[in-house]
């Protein structure tokens, strides 16, 4: 992290709203990628990003070292996203309720989606463990390099490579038919 970033994070921690808004602009896509990785829903992810920044602003004083600010933001976003995911699972409402309760409809829906390539990719993604999924979305949505992802998720280089390797391997196996058909 260079000194300018450091200063911006420091200022934000001390309550400089301008600095914090700069950080919002700079890191909202990363947080979105994380939230999307957890939730796989754009609207929900966006809400999560929104919530995460509000929460971060309110509890910014908890961060002692500016270096850890990005990772801290990521953690907040991830937790928030998990909360949303959990509430979606435990307290489904309205149409979603039917949707969730009726496996036939869900299956049908899934199959419909799976019929095209995008749907299949989504399904494959959904089948991944959360940690893997988040790594994948960070890579593909925010196009971050490995070093940044490591920093954001608090991982070592080897761990990230392992995670992505396994994630892509799993997805490859799932997408085997599609890949075959493409060939």
């Amino acid at each position: 992290m260079d000194s300018i970033d450091r200063e911006i994070y420091q200022a934000a921690i001390k309550g400089d709203r301008d600095a914090f808004e700069m950080i919002i602009r700079a890191s909202s896509r990363t947080l979105f990628a994380i939230a999307y990785g957890v939730l796989q829903d754009r609207a929900e992810a966006e809400d999560v990003v929104q919530d995460a920044f509000v929460k971060a602003w309110k509890s910014r004083w908890r961060v002692r070292e500016p270096e850890k600010f990005p990772a801290w933001l990521a953690t907040i976003a991830r937790h928030r996203a998990r909360d949303v995911a959990r509430s979606r699972r435990t307290a489904p409402l309205g149409g979603e309720l039917d949707h969730a309760l009726d496996p036939s409809i869900a299956n049908q829906h899934e199959q419909e989606r799976a019929s095209d390539v995008n749907g299949r990719v989504h399904a494959a993604l959904a089948a991944l463990p959360e940690a893997h999924r988040v790594a994948v979305t960070l890579r593909y949505i925010d196009a971050l390099d490995y070093a940044t992802i490591e920093r954001t998720l608090g991982l070592t280089n080897g761990a990230l490579r392992g995670i992505l390797g396994r994630a892509l391997q799993t997805m490859r196996r799932r997408l085997q038919p599609a890949l075959a058909s493409l060939d």
Binding site: I24, R25, Y36, E46, Q50, V121, H122, Y140, L179, L182
Partner: peptide, 23 residues
């Protein structure tokens, strides 16, 4: 494939501004 699929999921250009004004 993944790239093209997730291309749709990428936030639009006004995303940051939306987040900031929401904030």
């Amino acid at each position: 494939m993944i790239e093209s699929t997730l291309e749709e999921a990428k936030p639009d250009l006004a995303f940051e501004q939306r987040i900031v004004s929401g904030f």
